[in-house]
Simulated assay, not measured.
Amino acid sequence: MKIQNFKVGATGMDRFFGPLEAQVMNILWDMDHPMTIKEVLASLQTTKTLSFNTIMTVMNRLVEKGALTKTGESRSFHYEPSESREQFLNNQSRELTHELMEEFGSLAVNHMVDVLEEVDPQLIRALEDKIKQWKKET
């Protein structure tokens, strides 16, 4: 599944999904079992009252995007994430990194190394270890 609209200024799952979509995905990931629309609706923590139809529309759009799978029959559909949260984040970060490298090449690498030092100096050591491992394998 490839997210089409990555939002740079957002945080968490809102970078990949709309706010309500992100809430739905987080509920399903946290529960770790298939859920009905009613169950998801009951689990939502919002200040607004949301209708069954709104949640049904959001969940069916997530199915269309490939983020959820839908099983069952008409009145008892169950939804679950098509991949775990960890798999999703791994796949999305890999795709984003690939696109940055493809489009910006050495600029992206230079900026990533600069940011590694700012964010966590241990990430530089992890990068060095990865490069050493890669050199041994080639």
Rank of each mutant, 00 (worst) to 15 (best):
F16C: 05
G18E: 07
P19R: 05
P19Q: 06
P19Y: 00
L20M: 12
L20D: 07
E21H: 06
E21P: 05
E21F: 06
E21R: 07
A22Y: 02
A22H: 01
Q23T: 02
Q23P: 01
M25E: 12
I27E: 01
M31V: 15
H33Q: 14
H33R: 12
T36V: 11
T36W: 02
T36S: 09
L41V: 03
A42V: 06
S43A: 13
Q45N: 14
K48G: 08
T49N: 15
T49M: 13
L50R: 08
L50P: 05
L50I: 04
L50Y: 05
F52V: 14
F52P: 04
N53S: 13
N53K: 10
N53H: 13
N53G: 12
N53A: 12
T54W: 08
T54M: 12
I55L: 01
I55S: 00
T57H: 15
V58D: 01
V58T: 07
M59W: 02
M59C: 02
N60I: 02
N60S: 11
L62R: 00
L62M: 03
K65R: 10
A67C: 03
L68H: 00
T69K: 11
T69S: 10
T69Y: 05
K70T: 04
T71P: 01
G72V: 04
S74R: 15
R75Q: 10
S76H: 13
S76F: 06
S76N: 11
H78Y: 13
Y79G: 04
E80C: 09
E80K: 09
E80I: 05
P81T: 00
S82D: 09
S84N: 06
S84W: 06
S84I: 01
R85K: 14
R85W: 04
R85Q: 14
R85H: 07
E86Y: 06
E86R: 11
Q87S: 15
F88I: 04
L89D: 03
N90P: 05
N91E: 10
N91P: 01
Q92E: 13
Q92W: 03
S93H: 08
R94S: 08
E95I: 14
L96R: 00
T97D: 03
H98Q: 12
H98K: 10
E99R: 11
E99H: 12
E99N: 13
M101I: 15
M101W: 06
M101V: 06
F104C: 07
L107E: 09
V109N: 01
V109W: 07
H111G: 14
M112L: 11
V113P: 05
V113Q: 07
